[in-house]
Amino acid sequence: MDSTIDMLFWQLAAAYLFVLLLTVIVRIKGIPREKEIFIATVRMTLQLILVGYILVYLFEHSHPFYTSLLVVIMLAFAIRTIIKRAKVKLSRRMKRIIAFSMTSGILLSLICFIFVVLRLSPWYDPRYVIPIAGMIIGNSMTGIALGVNSLIEGMRSQKDKVEAALMLGATPKHAAQDIVNKAFDAALLPTINSMVGMGIIFLPGMMTGQILSGTSPLVAVEYQIAIMLGIVGSVSLSVILFVQLGYQTFFNRHSQLDL
């Protein structure tokens, strides 16, 4: 098969025309997003260039410490992003629950994927571990972020309903059950929608990248199915841990609602 096309600098620069188009559209519509678009574009570019050089070094100097360290850094930044993007200021307890849920769900899924699904040898091969960890962490971050905002919004908007249930003798778990279930559903919905449209409506990034690099489409499909199932597992574990522990932060030790 043909080798991957190596883009020249001007070809890559031409892709930024799409950002220019977006900026023009939001300006015409009077939406004050130009600054955010500019910052996001610059950050994306610098971050990807930096990661590119880091990966080149890792691939040439494969070591379990370097691979593990990069996964930990990615996870830490994901947790920080969730906390920063929350609609309200989070309590210290809620932050700890977010960190615990993310770490547990992601590491369990990643370990299973590396040692059971792929059976990597060596297990720390950065060519596999880093891209897979990135996809799992990124999707879990999106799920937890949606779960956080949905849970907070639900507890605040349905405060009267929860308090009424508590007055009638319900436990905090039963009083918040509907809110917890809706938060879990909201967090999982984007992942389910991706699975439904995958292959028919769009080709996912990992599969597209492999095909562009010359890999057989059938092999790319196998990897994509495996990683998608790994993502589902990670998002499910992370979110269920969060919602089952997170709702408890809205109640005090006397089982009273405390927002």
Rank of each mutant, 00 (worst) to 15 (best):
E153C: 04
M207W: 03
M207D: 07
A78Q: 03
L69C: 11
Y124S: 02
F242R: 02
L110E: 02
F251M: 08
T208H: 03
L241T: 10
Q158F: 11
S104T: 08
F100C: 00
D6H: 13
E60Y: 13
F100R: 01
A187S: 11
F113L: 04
A176S: 15
V26C: 04
M94C: 04
F38R: 15
H174Y: 13
L203M: 14
L21S: 10
S255L: 13
L257R: 12
G143N: 02
I211Q: 08
A226P: 14
S194I: 02
D2A: 06
V116F: 03
Q224L: 05
A165N: 13
L75A: 06
M195C: 06
M141W: 07
I227C: 08
M102A: 04
P190I: 01
I132W: 01
I136K: 04
P131D: 00
I211G: 10
I211P: 10
Q158D: 15
Y66G: 14
A14R: 09
L22K: 09
G169A: 06
I201W: 08
R33A: 15
L241D: 11
W10G: 09
F250N: 03
G233N: 03
G230M: 01
L237K: 00
S101H: 00
V235H: 03
S255V: 09
W123S: 10
V19W: 00
S109P: 02
A186R: 08
G246H: 02
P32H: 07
P131S: 01
I136M: 06
E222Q: 08
A220V: 07
H63S: 12
P64C: 01
P217F: 06
R253K: 15
I39P: 02
L229Q: 09
G209L: 05
L203T: 12
I25H: 00
V219G: 06
K87M: 02
M7Y: 15
L12M: 14
L118A: 13
I31Y: 11
R119E: 11
I192E: 06
N139F: 00
D178T: 15
E222M: 03
I25C: 00
